[in-house]
Write a protein that binds this DNA or RNA. Structure first.
Lengths: 344, 344
DNA sequence: GACTAATGTCGAACCGGTTCGCAGCAGGAG
DNA sequence: CTCCTGCTGCGAACCGGTTCGACATTAGTC
């Protein structure tokens, strides 16, 4: 293994001079700098990450805690991960990925051992046992997902309340007066997936304000089951002319359900989902949707995290809780309500 | 930060004794060991990963190089990643994730800087510029995916040739005499995705042997386009009674295509796919399929990698190229061919 | 020509672990 | 009583970087 000592010897200087020539932290004559750089190239030198981390207490690695829970749609999580990973790399950081079920233990392991300079937590729940550990950790962290208690934390999330209101208002403006909202499975809510009821409660309230009917239901997370649920709901509420989906699996299952029932969008039914554009493209979902912007959220979280890591006073800057405003991507799946399905 | 020196002082022993008490590499009296353990607990000591890596030249981290290329189905990749990640953790390793487009550069970065003890490469292509770098690296590596040149490498992949033969034979045994095979997009092949033609060539050869007709085509990677392709193919070959899919997007798009055309499986058309069981469950695909076993492949790769990392003579053990035998998961989507669609 | 300042380089210490060689001590054998 | 052995623990060196303080050389000033 080639060390900085080898480089120094080849360049005919001391180790410290070689180090300064490479880091630029002290003035070094152009000639020496050249000799050092030549030696680096000819020997193929790369600094040992462990040694550097030991000396500087900086690892240039960010921990990424992703939890792949039963009942949650894994492909959606992937997009957050890629947003985080790509942004980290742009800023000069690598990613240490922890996917184990016991996220708290994983978090403690990587922070206590100083493997990372900071941490991004995905899929944060209302009550999340990782948060206390993060608050005690010497490294900063950033969350994607809104927990019950945001104190001492940087938090990024979609504004699900606004998303719920937006869905309802959009349908109301078109003339719809009876809607169905299909949320994530109840398990997700029970485990603390707050975004489910944040959207749902806001949608219900807005429906009340607008004076229209909203049937709010939990869907399943897998396609066979969720398809059946959708069928049942359409049977149960024949007067409903609009469908709101806060459930990726339901969105993916809907086309074939509509087909089976011979329904056309938006003639027979107006539909709005809540998922990412990438997701829509991948599965060719023809429904207008609220963009959930996973890449953007991942990017924001990493940006803030790196700012906190790198700025000297970053540790003491005020903490931020930032919501991404939902945007409706129009794919033509909503229109004025036709004659109620009940009449046909 | 609490160091092993603090632990030693609290336990009233030297640093080396504390180290030996914790590692167990030398005999330490039960009493001293107890005092050290108590000190560790009361001070909340965890070894500094960088320092340990420097001293032992072991990081207990495995690099995972995943490439998310355009035209490839990202959710499928996720399952390989999870297989790798979970297995690594079981064996005591963390995962350093690199997703950047320039995989060769990423690989060089993490191996040269000694951030990892070994590396797993996903999505290996026929000609892969990461391989030369891996061969030169001081750490061992394991591949998922078969490259053109396997020398000095441990390689794991599905036996795509056998998968192709199996699909054809299964259909042939049921009495089918004209089949369509939809592969991944041509881009994937051109980029070096050898598994596409490994399956396709074997299927064509087996069709020849059996004396039946096989139309081999490339599909698209996104759902709207691939659905159209499927439609066109069913139009173009009305005599075909069986459909073989080596393309996740095509499989996901097929249900709605069948619906539109009013076709029932397996009455009007027999279908076999090639994807993972997890994928089938997630999207509720009702087609029999060859299990692609991403979790198993990821697990095998990590197991072999860790063996090579940890066994003293592991570096010199003969290299392995191991194929997972395909298994057909019967979901009832194949049967004896009905009257040709051409006749109806 | 002497004094100060700026510039460029070096040596040594340090980061926090691990590991090798040595030594003190107790017990058993001769 | 002496010698050898086995069991424990200690001190020092080392891993490969970074960084601080000091020093030598040259340039600039009066």
């Amino acid at each position: 293994m080639v060390t900085i000592g080898d480089v120094a010897r080849a360049a005919g200087v001391s180790r410290s001079t070689a180090s300064y020539a490479l880091s630029g932290k002290r003035a070094i004559s152009a000639e020496v700098r050249q000799r050092v750089n030549d030696a680096v190239r000819s020997l193929g030198y790369t600094a040992n990450a462990g040694a550097r981390a030991l000396a500087t207490s900086e690892t240039k690695v960010i921990g990424l805690l992703a939890q792949f829970l039963e009942d949650e749609f894994a492909p959606a999580m992937l997009q957050y991960m890629l947003g985080v990973s790509d942004t980290a790399r742009e800023l000069g950081y690598d990613i240490l990925l922890a996917t184990e079920a016991d996220g708290a233990r994983a978090l403690r392991r990587i922070t206590d051992s100083r493997m990372v300079d900071g941490v991004v937590l995905l899929n944060v729940a209302q009550e999340d046992d990782r948060l206390d550990i993060l608050r005690d950790a010497p490294q900063p962290g950033a969350l994607v997902g809104l927990p019950g208690d945001c104190s001492e934390l940087d938090v990024f999330d979609l504004d699900f309340e606004e998303a719920g209101r937006m869905m309802v208002d959009h349908m109301h403006a078109l003339g719809h007066r009876e809607l169905i909202l299909v949320s994530q499975p109840q398990h997700v809510v029970e485990r603390g997936g707050a975004y489910v009821w944040r959207l749902q409660d806001a949608a219900l309230e807005q429906a009340r304000v607008r004076g229209i009917t909203l049937h709010a239901m939990y869907g399943e997370s897998r396609q066979p089951a969720v398809g059946q649920t959708l069928n049942d709901l359409l049977d149960a509420y024949p007067g409903a002319t609009g469908l709101l989906l806060n459930n990726e699996a339901a969105a993916a299952a809907l086309p074939s359900v509509l087909h089976t029932r011979g329904l056309t969008v938006p003639k027979d039914l107006s539909v709005i989902g809540r998922y990412s554009d990438e997701f829509a493209r991948l599965f060719s979902l023809p429904f207008s949707s609220i963009e959930s912007a996973p890449d953007r959220l991942g990017r924001m979280a990493v940006r803030q995290l790196v700012r906190r890591i790198e700025s000297p006073e970053g540790r003491n800057e005020p903490y931020v809780v930032r919501f991404v405003s939902p945007e409706l991507v129009d794919r033509g799946s909503t229109g004025v309500p036709g004659p109620s399905r009940a009449d046909t």
